[in-house]
Design a protein around this nucleic acid. Sequence first.
DNA 1: GTCTATAGGTAGATAGAC
DNA 2: GTCTATCTACCTATAGAC
Lengths: 200, 200
Amino acid sequence: MPRRSSTSPVSSRDAILTVAVELFAERGYHATSMREVAQRVGVVPAALYNHFDGKDAIFVELGTRYFDAMYPALEAARHAEGDAADRLAAMVAASVNTAAGLRAEHMMLTDEWRTIRRSEALSVLAARRRACIDLWHEVLAEGAVDGSLRTDVDDSSIIWLLFAAITSLVDSGYWSDIAVKPSPPLDDVCSVILDGVRRS
Amino acid sequence: MPRRSSTSPVSSRDAILTVAVELFAERGYHATSMREVAQRVGVVPAALYNHFDGKDAIFVELGTRYFDAMYPALEAARHAEGDAADRLAAMVAASVNTAAGLRAEHMMLTDEWRTIRRSEALSVLAARRRACIDLWHEVLAEGAVDGSLRTDVDDSSIIWLLFAAITSLVDSGYWSDIAVKPSPPLDDVCSVILDGVRRS
DNA sequence: GTCTATAGGTAGATAGAC
DNA sequence: GTCTATCTACCTATAGAC
């Protein structure tokens, strides 16, 4: 049998990332302390610095993991079959599937976006996000050309609403004070964006 | 001429609130320090405690100010003329108008919602928000009865999207990395929710 | 009501033994 | 790679003079 990495079946490094992403998503960046991360991992705070340069580095690694999965998924969906409206729907589905597998990373990035933009150390994540946003803009522009999407509404407004829809699907439990049912089906929310709430 | 309150044309108390709400909205609750608030007001940190019991109390007062304006505006729009779809549109318009006049308070409450829910001291604001959400649920239920709104999508998902739309209109500049145009018209975003993005 | 001074706590991060 | 011990900095909040 091949030997495991060094000491433990799951490395301390992975344990730190697992604990940290949950705390970042639940409490936010500033309200999460290295002390608490260490405590939940079961080590002393100083031990964290054997694996990461600091709190910033942990956050950046988690965010990088997210975009490393999200960008290729969006890129693939962007070339799906059908008109631009179909490809838009495929991108929403791809986003939800990818983000659902990285739920805590998604919530962390969504809720701490101001922190990312204000921090020099975290700004690398802003560029990764920008690349994803550009893919959404592209498909919306194609929808204006092939006539499958409305042209009278600003692309940015539509993208904002799409992000909100994706987040609501990824973490429906988070807003449990609004929600009465768990996790509405993807197609329902997607159809709201495509067709609206007014009965036609 | 009638005399002003006591010493200054604008009270220190008001100055504290004005400075604090901008910092809370821009940086978040935990990243905003009493020291920085005091510095921008032009007093020493200790002086803040002559007007407020603490950081929590400042935040609660700002949130209370917001809901004191928002709830009556929603309640009035909820009884507008027309069918439920019309009243829903009136509520969106009322929300945007009210929140636009309290932009920083709106962003503060939106972005720091996790903090509010986790804090005992801030939980009074959760109840105020709950009351507003109930008004949205009511009009959506009416739309199911009078047939003016879709019934195949969960109310909570629609409310989430409405909140996202309102926030995007209130603070379009915040997401300037997405936005290419400033502040899209209210009717455009409202029509996306009502009629979707697919060309019919 | 604002000031000076400071208490009391916690944050991120480091040094060096093992 | 983890530990003990600690540094430096910053936080909210208070005490008491003016």
